[in-house]
Every structure is written in structure tokens, then in C-alpha cells.
Computed example of a mutant assay.
Amino acid sequence: MDYSLHARIRAGDPEAFRELFRDHAPLVHRHAVRVTGDRALAEDIVSLTYLEAWRLRDRLLDHEAGPRPWLMGIAVNVLRNTTRAARRHQAALGRLPARDTVPDFADELVGRMADADQLAAAHRALKKLRRTEREVFTLCVWSGLGYAEAAAALGVPVGTVRSRLSRARARLRKLAEQELKKNREPLPRPGQVQGGRTSAARSYESHEETYG
């Protein structure tokens, strides 16, 4: 493998960091949007991640398969350190329509849910996972990292990633169902059309079969 990019990053080569930003900033941003539910905060996460990457550039080792797991590991740590700020942003944006907050969340986790209440229920379910399970789920399912890449990003064995992801899927399915039941609409009155919660639940199950 050609490790010239690794060496250039460690040396602080501006062109190498431009290449790193061009190739991976969209991934970091998508990941941050889905974790925080806030596009503006996600942009801050991207900036902080690359500032940290510059500060920690000498820690990118030649034996690593590429800079993506290293960079995503930095992003995970930045997200951990900004959890409190993310909660403040989520509370403020929770008063806005869900599509303005996380327009593609439904595509990745529960299919195209029918309304904002269902979307909020799914997001609440995800937040009830343990942090370690949530991080593995978001890296592997949302951001498309392989087991080895996620393991490198989190600094854990591949087997740990597999077991955490399995637990996360099982727990998330149950939690999402519970959240949807708590927020189920009453039966419609004559002339009213009932929301699509049943179809949303089927969409969630279909999604889980795809990744399961």
C-alpha cells in the first residue's frame, strides 16, 4: 500500500489535508447530522474534527488501512465532547417540523415514516441505546463503515463491534416499537384518515431485515 498520504498528513502538508477534507468531509457531516439531528451543529462538528485531525496528525500510523477510520474516530470523540451542546440544539429544533431537523433520518433508520411524531419516536428510541451501542450502530449502519473500520475508529476489537451492533439492532427494534405504541393515534372519527403508523412499523422491520 502507498502510505505517501499518511506521511504527508503527518508532515502537515496543506494539499494532503485538502484531499482529506474533499474525500471525507461529506461522510463526517452526514454522520454528525444523523447523530445530533442538527445540520448547523454538524457543520461545527466537521470543523472541530478537522482541527483535531490537524492537532493529532502525527498519530496517523502507516499500519492503518487508510485515514477514514482514524478520522471517524476523531469525529466520534468530538461528538462525545459536544453532547451537551447537541442536546440544547435538539431541544430548540424539536419545536420545528422534523423534516427541517433531520430530513434523511427516516431513510436510514425506519424507512419513510408518515409523520413527525413517528420520526421523533424513532429518534428517542435511538437515544435510549447505550452510548457504545449507539456509536457502533451509527458508524456501521448510517455511515457505512465496515466492522474493521469501526473497530479502528473506536479502538475496540472487531468482535466487540459485531456484538455491540447485534445488541443495538435488537434493542432498537424493541424500543422503537414501544415509542410508537406510546404515541399511537386514537381511532379516526368518521371522515378522518388514520395516520400510517402500521405501515411505518412494517417499514422499520423491512429495514432491519435488510441490515440484519
Rank of each mutant, 00 (worst) to 15 (best):
L79S: 03
E149V: 00
R130C: 05
W142P: 00
V78M: 04
I9A: 01
P157L: 06
L41K: 03
H63T: 05
P14C: 07
T49A: 04
T198W: 10
P188F: 07
T101F: 05
M113S: 03
A122T: 13
D107I: 05
L79C: 07
E133H: 14
A152N: 02
E43H: 07
A176T: 13
L60T: 00
R57L: 06
R130Y: 12
A11T: 11
A114Q: 11
D100F: 12
L79E: 06
D115T: 10
R8Y: 03
D117Y: 07
F137Y: 10
L51W: 03
A25G: 09
A114R: 11
R169N: 02
Y211F: 14
L145H: 00
A42N: 06
L126N: 08
E208C: 08
A152L: 04
R112M: 07
S206V: 13
R189H: 08
A106G: 15
G37E: 07
A92P: 05
R189D: 12
R84S: 10
A153T: 04
Y147M: 03
N77T: 09
L71N: 03
G111I: 01
P103L: 08
A120Q: 09
E185K: 14
H207T: 14
R34T: 02
A40V: 15
E149A: 02
A65V: 00
L172Q: 05
V193Q: 12
R173A: 12
E108A: 14
T36P: 02
G66R: 01
Y147K: 02
H24K: 05
L187N: 11
R202G: 09
Q90N: 08
V33M: 06
A116P: 03
L93F: 03
G159K: 04
R134H: 06
S203E: 11
F105P: 01
L5T: 15
E133F: 07
Q118T: 15
G195Q: 09
L109I: 15
R173D: 14
V136I: 09
Y211R: 09
R124T: 03
L61Y: 03
E205S: 09
L60Q: 00
N183I: 04
G146K: 01
E108Y: 15
A170I: 12
Q192K: 12
E64C: 02
R39H: 11
R95M: 15
A32Q: 06
T101M: 10
N77A: 12
L20K: 04
A40E: 14
D107Y: 12
W54R: 09
L5Q: 14
R164N: 10
L119W: 02
G196C: 10
E177H: 05
R189G: 11
